[in-house]
């Protein structure tokens, strides 16, 4: 590479930018369509920049169904799921990475084995359990089964393995308590991994459809995916407004992504194998 002229590097830009644009076309299409007039849907030549702008698609969509409430519900549930994962996955990941106790290896296996049991597989009995707790049509009914995820534990364990044990020993000799060690020494070093964990826990909860569909039958607790599917099934609702809701649904995850971006860059390497 060194032998090439530096200017040549720019030659790679057009194909790469083209590829990126191609991958992003559906996203751009969604954005553009959400501002189009509804008759423009399946026209032969797409105007990527709308000839006439229809920002009213957004308020119109919000008026046709209680979307502000649905979004609020989704945000509540996703924030709780995110918090639950951050807390419990960190604890368990730390415990598995830095402590030896009888059955520790079995515990790791047991946790990883739950990857075999996604909600889609245990839907029926989980539903019956949540029902027997009286949690149908409640927030806790929606978020409870999502609070801890084995992937998160594994991610944290891999990352904490990379924190030098000497630091922990030194702190213990200084008389620091275990919780304090976790808070003061381990966590600050885990920020990138926590960012990845938080983003994916939030997004996975934000995406949940099948589970809320099963446990919720009241608008008060309906999350936005249920509202959006019902909206899309109604004959009267223009598809441009569906896209407006889809754009609004993308915004919260996008914002979280931007907020965490700096940390994520360092954290993504970890979602692979080694810390």
């Amino acid at each position: 590479m060194k032998r090439r002229l530096p200017g040549l590097r720019w030659l790679g830009l057009p194909p790469l930018a083209g590829l990126t644009l191609l991958v992003l076309l559906p996203v751009l299409w969604m954005l553009s369509t959400s501002f189009q007039a509804s008759e423009k849907m399946f026209q032969l030549a797409m105007d990527w920049i709308p000839r006439s702008w229809h920002p009213e698609n957004y308020p119109n969509a919000l008026h046709r169904a209680p979307f502000p409430l649905f979004f609020f519900n989704s945000i509540v549930v996703s924030l709780v799921v995110m918090a639950g994962n951050v807390v419990f996955c960190t604890l368990a990941g730390y415990g598995l990475a830095k402590f030896r106790f009888p059955g520790d290896r079995f515990a790791l296996l047991a946790i990883l084995s739950t990857l075999m049991l996604p909600l889609e597989v245990t839907l029926v009995p989980t539903f019956l359990i949540v029902h027997s707790l009286g949690w149908l049509n409640t927030y806790q009914g929606i978020f409870a089964p999502l609070l801890v995820d084995a992937f998160g534990i594994f991610l944290m364990r891999q990352f904490v393995l990379g924190v030098p044990t000497d630091y922990l020993e030194a702190a213990r000799i200084d008389g620091a308590g275990e919780v304090r060690i976790l808070w003061r020494i381990v966590l600050p070093q885990c920020k990138p991994a926590l960012a990845v964990l938080a983003l994916f826990a939030y997004r996975d909860s934000w995406d949940q459809f099948l589970w809320p569909l099963a446990v919720v039958s009241r608008d008060e607790y309906r999350t936005y995916p249920l509202g959006l599917v019902r909206f899309a099934e109604d004959y009267g609702n223009p598809q441009t407004e569906q896209m407006a809701v889809a754009v609004m649904a993308t915004v919260p995850v996008f914002v979280l992504f931007l907020l965490l971006q700096r940390l994520l860059k360092r954290g993504f390497g970890l979602t692979g194998l080694k810390g």
């Binding site: 029902h131 149908l136 049509n137 099963a214 039958s217 009241r218 608008d219 599917v229 019902r230 099934e233 109604d234």
Partner: peptide, 23 residues
């Protein structure tokens, strides 16, 4: 009266599950 509504194709399913769970 607590008024709830569902997509046309979902109402029957929801009521069935409601009966099964006492809701």
């Amino acid at each position: 009266v607590e008024f709830q509504y569902f997509a046309f194709s979902d109402l029957g399913k929801k009521v069935s599950v409601g009966y099964a769970t006492g809701t």
